[in-house]
Write a protein that binds this DNA or RNA. Structure first.
Lengths: 138, 138
DNA sequence: GTGATACTGGATATGTATATCCAGAATAGA
DNA sequence: TCTATTCTGGATATACATATCCAGTATCAC
């Protein structure tokens, strides 16, 4: 798959939640408005937003005066919650050479520790950063 | 795309080079033997090995007594050389929310530094670890 | 209730990664 | 040179991520 960056769906999800956190207000935000602001294909973003709503990150309201808003205060939404629904099957946090197997410390190669450090830094980032932390991104 | 792990092609490449480093010898190793040892589809692995040969990581010899061997001593082959040919287009080491843009420190969000740390740890790993370091992986 | 609105979900299209098959080219050995 | 052998490259197939379209359903305002 890849280096340390995210799929298009995951990036859309991060940008949408960051934008909602940066623009608080009493009204819900329309999916198509969000798509226009973020320059994301509206029909594709709608799928992403629906997934976030199903997973409790957003609250979706249908009908007139409807739209999306964050389910909680942005300080209380970890990036892990935003990312996980889209990284599901790929999230194999296993060994470097055997992503399907759990990592065992015993009998490891000499790169085991340094690779584990990279992997751990990534998980810590998702677990300690909240949507409020990415709110002010340009 | 993904969490901190690699595509199937990249993982195959890492495992193949690690195996070659772990089994030094005067003879070249046949592609189909490598595939059998590593339990990788032979026809797919052959494409991966050809790419590694094109990029100077392996030396390929055709015909009788042919096969593959490492182009240099495993201590002198960085993992970055093995990984880069397969991560080419994905290797966008940009911002968290804008992978296409270079990361600017000015005007960054509060998560900028911690994300940059994760990204840097990943690049350092690929640049400082060699094939010799993953040779003894089970 | 009625109608307008906006999210939801299914069907479909495209691109890329993964995987397979096979003919062709290059090499070693006789 | 001839032949067996092995890598190389093109064509093709499958799965999944990305992207689009549209009918259905839930909600608000009147």
């Amino acid at each position: 798959m890849c280096t340390v960056n995210f799929s298009a769906s995951t990036t859309h999800a991060l940008r949408a939640t960051a934008w909602l956190a940066a623009h608080p207000g009493e009204d819900a935000v329309l999916g198509r408005d969000l798509a226009r602001k973020l320059k994301i294909p509206p029909d594709y973003l709608s799928k992403v937003l629906a997934t976030l709503a199903r997973n409790g990150v957003l609250r979706a309201v249908r009908g007139a005066k409807g739209g999306y808003r964050l389910a909680r205060a942005p300080e209380r939404i970890k990036l892990a919650e935003v990312v996980t629904p889209f990284e599901g099957k790929r999230a194999r946090t296993g060994c470097l050479l055997h992503p399907d197997r759990p990592c065992r410390d015993s009998g490891a190669c000499s790169a085991h520790a340094s690779w584990g450090g990279v992997s751990q830094a990534y998980r810590d980032f998702l677990d300690r950063t909240t949507v409020a932390d990415i709110r002010d991104h340009p």
